[in-house]
Design a protein around this nucleic acid. Structure first.
Ligand code: FES
Ligand code: FES
Lengths: 144, 144
DNA sequence: TTAATAAAAGATATTTTTATCTTTTATTTT
DNA sequence: AAAATAAAAGATAAAAATATCTTTTATTAA
């Protein structure tokens, strides 16, 4: 569904939203531990998300990653698109060069419905939407 | 969504079902052209599907690939599972080691619905289901 | 203003996926 | 039986994804 990179990215932004909700910043080590990802790898991913304006960061002591008011409101669809591109929302299920109504693949009509539902679902939740349930221990960003 | 290998595989089995519906066999070159895939690569994939009993083949003149009565009835879910495994049907959207109700990721409940719909959709169509529409030129297995 | 901290940037390495090429085996036709 | 055909098998290669390591830059605190 999503690339491994994208899964890490989603977990990371949700984690940052959660941990920096009080205005503080979260370091890369804490993030890596919190979402169970390779430290240097998630660093690269966040660097990329930073360039795209999906996360903010500060260097030096007390530095780390955080989200400004705009970033908090980004949807998971934004994150997915930033990392994996829009192929998942627009591409052909069977890999035809072009998904289209005019010359559709055999799966087109049935697949389209599901693809749209995925897009609606991801577009309807912001990265900060999960803060409460993470606090309450109702959902998790890592497993043992 | 699916690996490139899996997309080729699905297109190939649908193509074979279509072309061998009359009891004949289809050669690897015709398949590769018909679904616009690298010839040697789809050969490897079909070799694999052959071992798993999802396609049949015969060597020598008039040889090629075909589907027996059982194979024709296999669903696209069977093909996907043979190539990509069941991760798409059972795995966590965010890559947690285990998808579960007890310690779910933030996306679990919403994602589960979509994952199930995908499984139902793929499980409800057999590889031969598309023969008529392919004949009628209503759907396609390649684009220019 | 020096030392410590933490991310950014750059370089390299490993693994997995995708693709290609060659040789062998099975089958059929002549 | 020999020649031709076509897939199976094996070996190699290229590309992409994932992961790690090192150096640099920015920021803060002592
Ligand atoms: S053409 Fe394949 S999904 Fe639209
Ligand atoms: S735990 Fe993530 S989808 Fe079920």
């Amino acid at each position: 569904m999503f690339s491994k990179t994208c899964k890490y990215a989603i977990r990371a932004v949700i984690f940052i939203a959660h941990k920096s909700a009080d205005g503080s910043r979260v370091g890369i080590k804490e993030i890596a531990k919190g979402i169970d990802s390779p430290e240097h790898f998630i660093a690269k991913i966040l660097q990329d998300l930073g360039k795209r304006g999906l996360v903010q960061s500060l260097k030096g002591p007390n530095g780390g990653f955080y989200l400004d008011e705009v970033s908090k409101k980004h949807t998971l669809a934004d994150v997915v698109e930033a990392i994996d591109g829009d192929g998942i929302f627009t591409g052909c299920a069977l890999g035809l060069k072009q998904c289209s109504e005019i010359k559709p693949c055999p799966l087109h009509s049935k697949f389209k419905t599901i693809r749209e539902q995925l897009q609606i679902m991801l577009g309807s939740v912001t990265v900060e939407n999960f803060n409460d349930e993470l606090n309450a221990g109702i959902s998790y960003l890592r497993r043992n």
